[in-house]
Design a protein around this nucleic acid. Structure first.
Length: 933
RNA sequence: GCGGGUGUGGUGAAAUUGGUAGACACGCUAGACUUAGGAUCUAGUGCUGCGAGGCAUGGGGGUUCGAGUCCCUCCACCCGCACCA
C-alpha cells in the first residue's frame, strides 16, 4: 500500500465535516484558550502560498492545546469590506457583494484543502448586515461617549450634559474654548449645544484634508495617488478640506502607551507602537508678532535652546499665514502654498530636498527682543504640535540644513560643542551664550526656561503626541454606512429621540443600499449621495432629514471582530455576556508586522472604550502577539533582445546584447530552465519566439520579490496540495524557516518533507508485500530514547513557536526508527499523536490503522501530560589553558519535566578532574570553566 | 528622512542563548538495485591545501581564556509611515 495522500486527505476532510469534529460548544467548565489569526481580505487573486503560513502555525498550536485538554477557540472569517472590491466594481460593473461572495467561497475552499480545524459555524464577514449592525452599534456608543479627564475613562455623554447643567464647563474646559456657566449652557441654542458636545464626543465631525482629483471628480486614497497624480488616468490631484468623522484616539494615548507594558508582544512591536503614539514632553511658547498685537504659538521639545532661535517655521496650510505675510511676499507665499498642496505628507518629510518661503513677517524674541523672521516650509506639518516651530539651527539637523540652504545666519548656543558643520543635537550638553541659562546643562536650562516663560505668561510645559485622531470617513460605497442622520445640518445618531425618526428608520443596521453604479456623488461625496431615497428621509413630523453618505473605513469591522467570534450568531448583543466572560481576550494572535500600528492600535482603542462603558471585562484585546514573515515570490525573467521582434537570449549570454527583462510565469520554468514549448503557448505574441540557448538550455534570471499576480510569481497552494498533499504542504511551510522571518518560496525543497511522510508511512506498511507490519513487541531502550528525546524537543519547540526545528526533529525521529526497523505499536502510536497537530490527515489515517476508532481530535490524549523517561547525556564544555576545549559527557537519567542534573555542574567537573593534574580552575558565572594545566 | 527588522555554505536554515559553526533538508557528485523510476537505499559535499593544517557567520574595530551570539562603527536588503487592508 502506497501513501495515497489524495484519498486519505479527502477522506478525513469529509469525515471532519460530517462529524463536525471542530465545532465548538461554549463548554464554560473547561480551561479556555483563544487562538486567532488576522482574518484575510478576500482578494480576487485567491490565496497564494504565503497566506497560510500563519494559519498553519495557529492550527498546529490550537490542535496542540486541544490535545492538552483546553477548550480552544480558533475561528476564521473575512474582512470583506474594502477598496479593491469597489475599484473592481468601477471597472467591471460587478457588484462588490457578488465578487466578495465569490472570493470568499474560493478562499474557503482553498483553506479547507489544507485541513484547518476552523469551526466554520462561527465564521464572520464584516460586510454581512448581521455583523455590521454591531459595528454601527458600537459606533453609536462611541459617538455617545466622552472621555472624563478626571477618571480618564469613557463615560456616556449624558454625564457630561449633567455636568454642564450643573456647573458649565469650568472643570472640563477644552483648550481654546471659552468658559460658560450652567446658566449660559441652558440658554444656548440646540445647535450650539450640539457643537460644543461635538468637541467632547469620542466620535466627532471635523474638517480634514483629502486627496481630491478634479478630473475624476472624486476623493482618492493615498494608494490611488502615485507620483503626485491619480493612479487611474494620471490626472493632477490636490488636497482639499472636507467634513470628516474622526475617532478621538488621542484621548487614550497615555493609556494605550501604559498598558503596552503588560502585553506579551515582541519588544520591536511595542517599540513601534510607542513611537507611533510618540509621546514627547516639551513646551508651547508664544512669540509676539512684530508691530502687531498677535502671537504665534510654537511647540518645542527643547525649550532650553530658545536663545538659539534664528527663525520660525510655519506649516504652509495654517490659515493665518495669509494675514501675516507682507504684500511683497504674498505672491511667493501663495505659489509655495499651492506647490505644497500637491505634495503628499510622505514626500514632504522623506525627501532631502529643502524648500520654503519667507513670509516677510517677524516675531520678537521673548527674551532678547531680537527680530526673528517667519518662514513657511513643508517640513513642518500642521497636524503635529501647533503646526509651528522655533528653528534652532545649531541644535537641530533639519533646522541647520534649512538655515544653510537659505543663508540664514546661525547663532551658536553650544560653544565649542557646535563646530559649524553640523547641528549639535545631543540631549546631553552645556548651553552657552544664552543669558541666564549659560553654563547650565540642557536639563537645568529647560527647567529654568519653563519657569521663566510661565512667569511671563507666554507659555507652559506641554505633553504632545505624534498620534493623531483616527480619520473615520470614506467617500466610498463598499463600507459600513453610518447610523447618522442630519437635521438642519446637525448630525444625530439614529437612536436619538430628538430626530423623531419613523420606526423603520430607527433600527440598526442601516443597510447599505443597492446601487447601479459606483461613481462618486456630487462635490466629492461618496456614491451613496447619488441615491436619493437613501439620503432623503422624513421623520414622523414630516421634516426633511439627510443621511450621512460617508461610509466607515476598513478598520471599523476589524477593530472588534475578535469579540464577535465568541457568540457570532447572537442577534441581541454584539457579544454574549457569558461567552465574553469566559473567552476573555485573545491568548495568541498571529499576523503580519504590517499591522503593527494601524489595526492593532485601533483595536486596542475600541477594546478600551468598550471596557470603560462596561460592555466587556478586559482592556486589551490581544495578550500574546506573534508576527509571521512574508513568503516572497521568486520571479523568473526572460531577456528579449531590443529591436529583434521576438528573440530571447539565455541569462548567461544576455550581457552580449541589449535586452529588456520580462517577467515570465514561474510555472513555465523548472528551476531556472525555461520550458520553451510552454512559453510559446503562454501568449499568442510569443508563438514564434526564437531563443539563443546556452548549453542547449534557456536559463531564466531570478529575483526575489513580493508575490503578486502582476509579477507572475504566484504559487497557488491548491496545486501544491494536489501534487504533494496538504500534510506535506503544511509541514514544508513550517520547515522553511522561523515563522517570523520573510523568505522566498521554493517549490523544489518540498521533496524532503514529502519523503519524510512516505518514510513514516513505510514504518506501518510494507510496500512490497502490501501488508500492515506493526507489531505488539515491547519497545527497547534505543527506540524509547529517540522517541522521548523527540517528544521533549517537539513540545518545547511548539511552545516556542519554533516549528521549523520541530519538523527537523520529526525527520530525525523517523530516520532513526527506520534504521532501527522499529514497527512497534507502542512507539508508533506515540509518534502519530505527536505528529497530529502538524500533519492531521496522515495521523488520523495511521491512528485508524493502529486500531483506534474515531478521530484523534475527538478526545484529548495524555501523551503531552505524561512524564516520560528520558535517557540522555549532558555535556559540559571545559577549556584547557583557555584554548583547547573538550566536552565531558555525563550520562544521566531524569524525568522529562525534570531533566536538570541532580548534581551541581561544577561538582561534576571537579569530579572529572580528580586525579588529573591542574593548576587552576576558572569559574565563569558558576558555569563555564577554564582549566589551566 | 523617521521608526522597526534582517544579514551564517550553491539554496532554505540550525546552533543548548557566550562554549566543537553549518543540525535537518534542498541541490550537486559518485555508487547500488533496477531491462529508463521524477521510486528506494549507501557514501560524499563550507572554502583552501597532496598533507598536518589554515581560513570562514555582510565589512572594519573592541570586550573575553573563548564571539554567529555582547559593545562601537560602516554597508546592504526588507516592512511601516496615518484613505491598501
Amino acid at each position: 500500500m502506497k501513501y495515497d495522500f489524495n484519498t486519505i486527505e479527502q477522506k478525513w476532510n469529509t469525515y471532519w465535516k460530517e462529524h463536525q469534529t471542530y465545532q465548538l460548544k461554549n463548554q464554560f467548565d473547561k480551561p479556555k484558550y483563544y487562538v486567532l489569526d488576522m482574518f484575510p481580505y478576500p482578494s480576487g487573486a485567491g490565496l497564494h502560498v504565503g497566506h497560510p503560513l500563519g494559519y498553519i502555525a495557529t492550527d498546529i498550536f490550537s490542535r496542540y492545546k486541544r490535545m492538552k485538554g483546553f477548550n480552544v477557540l480558533h475561528p476564521m472569517g473575512f474582512d470583506a469590506f474594502g477598496l479593491p472590491a469597489e475599484q473592481y466594481a468601477l471597472e467591471t460593473g460587478q457588484h462588490p457583494a457578488v465578487t466578495t461572495e465569490n472570493n470568499i467561497k474560493r478562499y474557503k475552499e482553498q483553506l479547507d484543502n489544507i485541513g484547518f480545524n476552523y469551526d466554520w459555524s462561527r465564521e464572520i464577514q464584516t460586510s454581512d448586515p448581521k455583523y455590521y449592525k454591531w459595528t454601527q452599534w458600537i459606533f453609536t456608543k462611541i459617538f455617545h461617549s466622552w472621555l472624563n479627564p478626571k477618571t480618564q475613562k469613557a463615560e456616556p455623554i449624558n454625564t457630561l450634559l449633567a455636568l454642564f447643567e450643573k456647573e458649565g464647563n469650568i472643570s472640563v474646559q477644552k483648550e481654546k474654548a471659552s468658559l460658560f456657566t450652567a446658566e449660559e449652557w441652558k440658554n444656548f441654542k440646540e445647535e450650539d449645544q450640539r457643537n460644543i458636545l461635538m468637541q467632547y464626543r469620542l466620535a466627532y465631525l471635523a474638517e480634514a484634508e483629502v486627496w481630491w482629483c478634479e478630473a475624476l471628480n472624486t476623493v482618492l486614497a493615498n494608494d490611488e495617488v502615485v507620483n503626485g497624480v491619480s493612479e487611474r488616468g494620471g490626472f493632477p490631484v490636490e488636497k482639499k478640506k472636507m467634513s470628516q468623522w474622526f475617532l478621538r484616539i488621542t484621548d487614550y494615548a497615555d493609556r494605550l502607551l501604559d498598558s503596552l507594558n503588560d502585553l506579551d508582544w515582541t519588544d520591536a512591536m511595542k517599540e513601534m507602537q510607542r513611537n507611533w503614539i510618540g509621546r514627547s514632553e516639551g513646551a508651547v511658547v508664544e512669540f509676539q508678532l512684530k508691530d502687531e498685537n498677535r502671537k504665534i504659538e510654537v511647540f518645542t521639545t527643547r525649550p532650553d535652546t530658545i536663545f538659539g532661535v534664528d527663525f520660525i517655521v510655519l506649516a504652509p496650510e495654517l490659515n493665518y499665514i495669509e494675514t501675516i505675510s507682507t504684500p511683497e511676499q504674498q505672491e511667493a507665499v501663495n505659489n509655495y502654498i499651492k506647490y505644497v498642496k500637491s505634495r503628499s505628507e510622505r514626500e514632504r518629510i522623506a525627501e532631502k530636498k529643502i524648500s520654503g518661503c519667507f513670509t516677510g513677517a517677524f516675531v520678537i524674541h521673548p527674551f532678547t527682543k531680537r527680530e526673528i523672521p517667519i518662514w513657511i516650509s513643508e517640513y513642518v506639518l500642521s497636524g503635529y504640535g501647533t503646526g509651528a516651530i522655533m528653528a534652532v539651527p545649531s541644535g537641530d539637523d533639519r533646522d541647520f540644513a534649512f538655515a544653510q540652504h537659505f543663508d540664514i545666519e546661525i547663532s551658536n548656543i553650544f560653544g565649542t560643542q557646535f563646530d559649524g558643520t553640523k547641528a549639535f543635537s545631543s540631549k546631553e550638553g552645556i548651553i552657552e551664550n544664552s543669558d541666564f541659562i549659560s553654563g547650565k546643562t540642557i536639563k537645568e536650562a529647560a527647567d529654568l526656561i519653563l519657569k521663566a516663560i510661565e512667569a511671563q505668561g507666554i507659555g507652559q510645559s506641554k505633553i504632545n503626541f505624534k498620534l493623531r485622531d483616527a480619520g473615520f470617513s470614506r467617500q466610498r460605497y463598499w463600507g459600513e454606512p453610518f447610523p447618522i442622520v442630519y437635521k438642519n445640518n446637525i448630525p444625530y445618531s439614529i437612536d436619538e429621540a430628538e430626530l423623531n425618526l419613523k420606526e423603520a428608520d430607527k433600527n440598526l443596521p442601516v443597510l447599505l443600499p443597492h446601487v447601479d453604479h459606483y461613481g462618486p456623488g456630487p462635490n466629492g461625496q461618496g456614491p451613496l449621495a447619488n441615491i436619493s431615497n437613501f439620503v432623503n428621509i422624513q421623520n414622523s413630523n414630516g421634516e426633511n432629514l439627510l443621511r450621512e453618505t460617508n461610509t466607515m473605513p476598513g478598520y471599523a469591522g476589524s477593530s472588534w471582530y475578535f469579540l464577535r467570534y465568541m457568540s457570532p450568531n447572537d442577534s441581541e448583543n454584539f457579544v454574549d455576556e457569558e461567552a465574553c466572560k469566559y473567552w476573555q481576550s485573545v491568548d495568541l494572535y498571529v499576523g503580519g508586522t504590517e499591522h503593527a500600528v494601524g489595526h492593532l492600535l485601533y483595536s486596542r482603542f475600541w477594546t478600551k472604550v468598550l471596557f470603560d462603558l462596561a460592555y466587556t471585562k478586559f482592556e486589551e484585546p490581544f495578550k500574546r502577539l506573534l508576527n509571521q514573515g512574508m513568503i516572497q515570490g521568486s520571479s523568473r525573467f526572460v531577456y528579449r533582445i531590443k529591436g529583434a521582434a521576438c528573440q530571447f537570449v539565455s541569462e548567461g549570454l544576455k550581457d552580449q546584447y541589449e535586452t529588456d527583462a520580462i517577467h515570465v510565469d514561474v510555472n513555465l520554468v523548472n528551476g531556472t530552465e525555461l520550458d520553451l514549448e510552454a512559453f510559446k503557448k503562454w501568449r499568442a505574441e510569443y508563438a514564434d519566439a526564437h531563443f539563443i540557448l546556452e548549453e542547449e538550455k534557456y536559463i531564466c534570471g531570478v529575483e526575489i520579490e513580493k508575490m503578486s499576480k502582476s509579477k507572475y510569481n504566484v504559487v497557488n497552494p491548491d496545486n501544491i496540495v494536489k501534487e504533494y498533499g496538504a500534510d506535506t504542504f503544511r509541514m514544508y511551510e513550517m520547515f522553511l524557516g522561523p515563522i517570523e522571518m520573510s523568505k522566498p518560496w521554493d517549490t523544489k525543497g518540498i521533496e524532503g518533507v514529502h519523503r519524510f511522510l512516505k518514510k513514516l508511512w513505510r514504518l506501518f506498511f510494507d510496500e512490497q508485500t502490501e501488508e500492515f507490519i506493526v507489531t505488539d513487541e515491547a519497545p527497547n531502550k534505543a527506540e524509547l530514547k529517540i522517541l522521548h528525546q523527540s517528544i521533549k524537543k517537539v513540545i518545547d519547540d511548539i511552545e516556542k513557536f519554533s516549528f521549523n526545528t520541530s519538523v527537523a526533529q520529526f525527520m530525525i525521529l523517523v530516520n532513526e526508527l527506520s534504521d532501527l526497523k522499529c514497527h512497534k505499536k507502542a512507539i508508533l502510536s506515540q509518534v502519530v499523536l505527536l505528529l497530529n497537530p502538524f500533519a492531521p490527515h496522515i495521523s488520523e489515517e495511521l491512528w485508524h490503522h493502529l486500531g483506534y476508532e474515531g478521530s484523534i481530535n475527538d478526545a484529548s490524549f495524555p501523551i503531552f501530560e505524561e512524564k516520560h523517561i528520558v535517557e540522555t547525556e549532558k555535556t559540559y564544555p571545559v577549556a584547557i589553558n583557555g584554548k583547547h576545549r573538550t566536552n565531558i559527557a555525563f550520562p544521566l537519567t531524569a524525568e522529562a519535566k525534570d531533566v536538570e542534573p541532580v548534581v551541581l555542574e561544577n561538582e561534576i567537573v571537579q569530579k572529572w578532574l580528580e586525579g588529573k593534574p591542574h593548576k587552576k580552575i576558572i569559574f565563569v558565572k558558576g558555569k563555564m570553566i577554564n582549566v589551566i594545566v
